[in-house]
Design a protein around this nucleic acid. Sequence first.
DNA 1: TCCATTGTCTGACTCTAGTCAAAGAGTATC
DNA 2: GATACTCTTTGACTAGAGTCAGACAATGGA
Lengths: 293, 293
Amino acid sequence: MDTETVASVRRFNRTVTERVGALDESYLGRGRPLGETRLLWEIGPDGVDVRDLRRRLGLDAGYASRLLRSLESERLVVVEPGSPDRRVRRARLTAKGRAERGELDRLSDGLAASLLEPLEQSQRARLVAAMDEVERLMRASLVTITVADPADADARWCIEQYFAELGERFEDGFDPAISIAAPIDELKPPTGLLLVAHLRRQPVGCGALKLRPGRPVELKRMWVSPEVRGLGLGRKLLRELERHAAAAGADTVRLETNRSLTEAIALYRTAGYREVEAFNSEAYAHHWFEKRL
Amino acid sequence: MDTETVASVRRFNRTVTERVGALDESYLGRGRPLGETRLLWEIGPDGVDVRDLRRRLGLDAGYASRLLRSLESERLVVVEPGSPDRRVRRARLTAKGRAERGELDRLSDGLAASLLEPLEQSQRARLVAAMDEVERLMRASLVTITVADPADADARWCIEQYFAELGERFEDGFDPAISIAAPIDELKPPTGLLLVAHLRRQPVGCGALKLRPGRPVELKRMWVSPEVRGLGLGRKLLRELERHAAAAGADTVRLETNRSLTEAIALYRTAGYREVEAFNSEAYAHHWFEKRL
DNA sequence: TCCATTGTCTGACTCTAGTCAAAGAGTATC
DNA sequence: GATACTCTTTGACTAGAGTCAGACAATGGA
């Protein structure tokens, strides 16, 4: 990576942390330690299980407990045994807590506005546009791809979303019963493999392989959540899947797809897949592709 | 400011602090508290007076002293009485300190690169371009304008830069002796006023008024440092000067300028100045402008 | 029923990043 | 030479943010 590029990034980091960091830390305190504020914020209007809260913020159990006690003593939060498991406690905001959270929300808005405030109208528009671009691209680089157990909640959620989208986009809807089955529990070694992409612990995409010894690997269940489309996640997933296929000893990857999935088809073509004769009788397929690894 | 704009800024803040902040704080530690690292960095290859160091980082005297002791005990820094004033101590890096600082530099580079690393080539280019834009505009919003004593080092530096630039840009060079004098020490109340713009405590621009009771205010010494041009600082300075002129009771502002200063002329025109007959015999002037406040 | 596991709470501790006041050493000014 | 002032150091203190181990209560299986 060339020096000028790195220098740009370093300049950016410096200016932005100076400007954004300083504001955030000083103004959002509201006389309360920042840790408590973060907690108050994350509890959200509907309450959360303390366990999830801890996991989401990466807090030590003891520390989290103490922070909650402190928020409780300010009457901003109540913590009560959850159901059905009474060990997992649930934190909820009180009316006062919700009011305080609303106040924080307003403050954050004000803070954001104060970043733009010293600028001319046209400069503001340019800044916001550039911020959107930076944010999108950084978000893209925060996506992680991991091998998942198809029984995981996140994995199942992705596959549900995938089916739901097929139902919307296929001309005649989509009924999994008519499609060639790739039973979900086969998508783990040794018969298959499932990758799930996460962004900030939220699942945002998936892709799977069907592995059968001596036969080409089949690519299945490629899905990218609408909120992260256009960031190259599809291509990244595809590359990862191919890597796993090669590692499993395959020399060919195959897939079939429906003509309505135009961006997927474009992706396959630019990734080196070439269209081949139908190699199965999938009811919903119009195109069959193959790539030698 | 509309909701979508504010939401964009908030999204940006969140993603960027998560991505940049986390990296910065964890990786740049090198087993040393961050405060010490900052100090090490700021001392720089040539050493600094402890007093300046403290002022630059905004540190408490006691705290700074302790940090320096700690760096000294690691043999990264030596602090010795300065000359000529032996109260003002001077901090210098040892060879080990310079090596360590170099290491930090390399780490920062790596960190910057790691932000780009997960992206495709074309996405990288877009990210860097957007970062440059954000950085420039945020830098613009960090500029502060204050009334300065013309005897201040920063003020004198700006005016020197201004003369130097005139020397370069005027077709026949510039000799202050031939120009109508605006003796520098007149640029303070009640005979005048000098504004200096700072960016991170560095002077980056200036502008002055000559005030004479019962006569139009004269605008002088408008200069913007090349590194912040194109960010609207000139217009901002001009507005501030007009504000001060009005506050001093003036109803008219006048100025003369050289034809080679095209962007300044454009600025005056769009700011409501209209060209008038020559009202003085300034040797270097080709245009005279006036604005009623 | 017993027992390992999970989730939470508490007390005791650490480290970082400060602040504040007093005092010493040097310098400037009368 | 006395005195005021500046720069720095030192000691004593604080708050925030977090770690770690032990205790205890629910839960899930064998």
